[in-house]
């Protein structure tokens, strides 16, 4: 393998890993704290993408400088995450605490089906294009081929998000509360932690992260109906590989899947699709709890 190919694979892999990390970290946080496998995560992603594409279009059409479209991405992520996340938690999830966890999964599945069709109602079936942010940043030459800078910034964004989460969880009082809840819900309540508040904030945080993934990807794709379906499974695979509920796990899972896929595309395109699931099955067979999650004792 020559140097150009190696560097290309590395960059492709990092870009895709960053994308995977962004879309899966929200899922894993919600799971870690609340033990909810949130199928509606795909809806956060899709709604984030649609809102971002929509706002970018408005911004751009009103003659404002295209550089401002980045602001729209952030606004879209926050808007969708906070509104949709808060709405779901307050109107649905909060009534389900104490019920069977799998019933909660089903409720989020139902929500996903509803939100999926609501997209059609609100945004129509025509795809949205929001290419402006990508054009603003232009291209650069790396390893002998052209790169669009926008995709490269994905790596930076993922690193920043990862760093903020790490500092937030380990260095702040808030993060330690969260960690306590993750470890033992009952004891946390006994010690006076307001679990309800922790849950609301966690759910909204997860929703914002999911929406951010969609909002940031929107400029590079055609945002079309059905956008959220594949993402659920992809982020789910990353979370399973890394260990459900573990943030370092999400990083490692994303890196493994992203780089393995890049190698496959360049060296063995026939197995490209299978790579994600192949890694997942290997992990499942040898370490079913995922690479990073500590083996959890069965509660009796």
């Amino acid at each position: 393998m020559d140097f150009a190919t190696a560097i290309t694979i590395l960059i492709d892999g990092l870009v895709f890993s960053s994308y995977l990390f962004l879309v899966s970290v929200g899922l894993t946080i919600i799971f870690g704290v609340m033990k909810i496998l949130n199928v509606a995560h795909g809806s956060f992603y899709a709604w984030g993408a649609y809102t971002s594409a929509y706002l970018i279009g408005i911004w751009s059409n009103s003659g404002l400088p295209d550089a401002g479209t980045f602001l729209m991405i952030a606004v879209a992520a926050l808007l969708v995450g906070v509104v949709l996340g808060l709405f779901l938690e307050r109107c649905l999830i909060q009534f389900m605490y104490g019920r069977d966890e799998v019933i909660i999964v089903l409720a989020t599945f139902a929500t996903f089906l509803i939100l999926e069709d609501l997209i059609l109602v609100v945004f129509g079936v025509d795809p949205y294009f929001a290419y402006q942010p990508m054009m603003v940043l232009g291209s650069t030459q790396i390893g002998g081929i052209m790169r669009d800078v926008y995709s490269l910034t994905l790596i930076g964004l993922a690193a920043v998000v990862g760093l903020i989460l790490w500092v937030g969880l380990t260095k702040t009082k808030w993060g330690r509360l969260l960690t306590a809840v993750i470890h033992d819900r009952e004891i946390s309540v006994a010690m006076g932690i307001d679990v309800t508040k922790v849950f609301i904030l966690t759910f909204v945080l997860g929703a914002v992260l999911g929406a951010l993934g969609g909002a940031y990807v929107a400029p590079t794709v055609s945002v079309a109906p059905g956008f959220g379906i594949d993402v659920i499974v992809l982020s789910f695979a990353v979370v399973v590989i890394g260990g459900m509920g573990s943030i370092p796990g999400a990083i490692i899972g994303a890196l493994i899947v992203g780089i393995a896929r890049a190698i496959a595309v360049h060296k063995l395109p026939e197995v490209e699709l299978f790579v994600v699931y192949g890694v997942m099955v290997a992990v499942l067979v040898f370490r079913p709890e995922g690479l990073f999650a500590p083996a959890k004792a069965r509660k009796i």
């Binding site: 496998l37 789910f236 695979a237 699709l273 192949g278 499942l284 709890e289 069965r298």
Partner: peptide
């Protein structure tokens, strides 16, 4: 060996492996 949500998620994972094989 698994119960509750872990059982649900692992079974989903296995089914997606099958899906990947068929699609490919």
């Amino acid at each position: 060996r698994y119960r509750e949500i872990f059982f649900a998620m692992l079974s989903l994972a296995f089914s997606m492996v099958m899906y990947g094989i068929l699609v490919k």
